[in-house]
Amino acid sequence: MHKVFRSVMVLLEWLLFIAASVIGIANGAVNQYAWERISRINQEGPYLGIVVPNSFEMSPLLQSSSFVPNNKFPYIDFAGRRFRIGRVEDKRVIVVMTGLSMVNAGITTELLLNLFKIKGILHIGIAGNANPELQIGDVTIPQYWAHLGLWNWQRFGDGPNDELALESNGDYTRKIGYLKFSDYNNNTRDDNLLNNVWFQPEEVFPIDGYPEIRQHAFWIPVNDPYFSLAMKLEGMELGGCVNSTCLPRTPKVIRVERGVSANVFVDNAAYRKFLHSNFNVTTIDMESAAVALVCLQQRTPFLTIRALSDLAGGGSSISNEAATFAPLAASNAVEVLLKFISLLNLEIQQICEKLLNLHSFFNLIIIFC
């Protein structure tokens, strides 16, 4: 009987081993080897996630002496992305390139947050400018982000007072605003067959919400402590020249109210003016709102740092704009990122010192009382 029992136990152990092996090999899209590496990387976490759209925007960071790759696990490749592990300003980071567009930015940010222990996201890159009072090379830090590529395109003949399709079901709204194409007809006020497009909020499903019960979000705020800390970046000295071509003034860091994203490269002055006058937009890009939406749903602190590479649609006195100044803008964005991370370290150190002082104070009370 005892031998039978032992045989059964050995068989069960083998079955469990085989099952564990199969699960390890087919654990979603992550194989056992990758999970082991990710687990070991996470043991040294949590990390700051640094999300960058393109290689030329990431190169100044990787080439900086401030970035030190992890000597054991400098990177791990997964789902077409390379997650680079290291330190920036002596803070643990994971750097990843998303690629162009909202879809790529959203997928990459979701992977970063689901695979690794991430305590905050810093998103950097270049952007178009909708505010003519600012200049190429300036680095903007918006307080709110919105996705302006989600439209309800109204049927020709309908106007602002007509209900949108499926609006009565709660799917769409007229609260945010619309763009009327005929406002931009040349020398005429005739109706335009393109009629109106109404901007819509995103559906979001936060991790602390009830599954399949949607919420809506349009203007997504960045992390308050991050945004407050970013005020200390104003006054930084930034680069203003590319070879022998220099900007009219030294670029500056400025916190602005709003930035917007969509799967559109905005090289149109009329649309730029519309965005600035109707939404008070400064920064225009193709990824930041996707990062913001994922961080909102995952309840992860985030901040976006975007350097202006052109006045969207032209009209600037500076020739060539993005073609000439994109590398300068990318370098400026990285410089501001590095400074922000150093401020994070300093702030943590100051908090720790206050806690130590408080602890000493209570020890004195205990001693004397």
Rank of each mutant, 00 (worst) to 15 (best):
V197R: 10
E287N: 04
L247F: 04
M1P: 07
T109I: 03
Q135R: 09
N280S: 15
D90N: 11
I367W: 11
T282Q: 04
A146P: 01
D285F: 04
V22Y: 09
N243R: 12
I141G: 01
Q200W: 09
F265L: 13
I213C: 10
R6W: 11
F227P: 00
M102N: 07
N243S: 10
G125R: 00
D138L: 04
G159H: 12
E36F: 08
T250E: 15
H359F: 12
P201I: 02
Q297H: 09
N320S: 13
I118T: 01
P327Q: 09
L62W: 02
V281Y: 02
G106N: 01
R6D: 12
K117C: 06
G149L: 08
T140D: 04
S65R: 10
P46E: 08
T250K: 09
D191H: 10
F279K: 05
F361W: 14
V8P: 02
R87E: 12
R40P: 00
S64A: 11
D183H: 03
Y75A: 10
A322T: 04
P201A: 05
N268K: 05
P221F: 09
S39R: 10
A262V: 07
G28I: 03
A290I: 05
D208R: 07
N320M: 15
T282E: 11
V88R: 04
I141D: 02
V51F: 05
A323N: 04
G125M: 05
Y172T: 15
S288I: 00
M231L: 15
V197M: 08
I23E: 09
I305E: 02
E89Q: 14
N320E: 15
F56N: 13
L308F: 09
S55V: 11
K180R: 15
T250H: 06
H359M: 13
P60K: 00
W35R: 13
L100P: 00
R82A: 13
V96R: 00
L112K: 00
E203N: 14
F279S: 02
N27Y: 14
A217M: 00
L346E: 15
E353Q: 13
S21F: 06
E347Q: 08
R81I: 05
V139G: 08
P301C: 07
H276D: 07
V242A: 12
V197G: 06
Q63I: 08
Y33K: 15
E287I: 08
R306A: 11
A34P: 01
M286Y: 07
L293W: 02
H276T: 07
P60F: 07
N263V: 07
F325A: 04
A330E: 03
A29T: 15
G80M: 00
I348K: 09
Y178Q: 03
W14R: 06
R155M: 12
N320A: 13
S168D: 11
M102G: 04
N187R: 11
R6S: 07
G120Y: 03
I213E: 11
Q298L: 09
I254D: 06
L193K: 09
N268Q: 14
V51D: 03
K91R: 15
V291R: 05
L115G: 01
S342C: 10
S64D: 12
R174V: 08
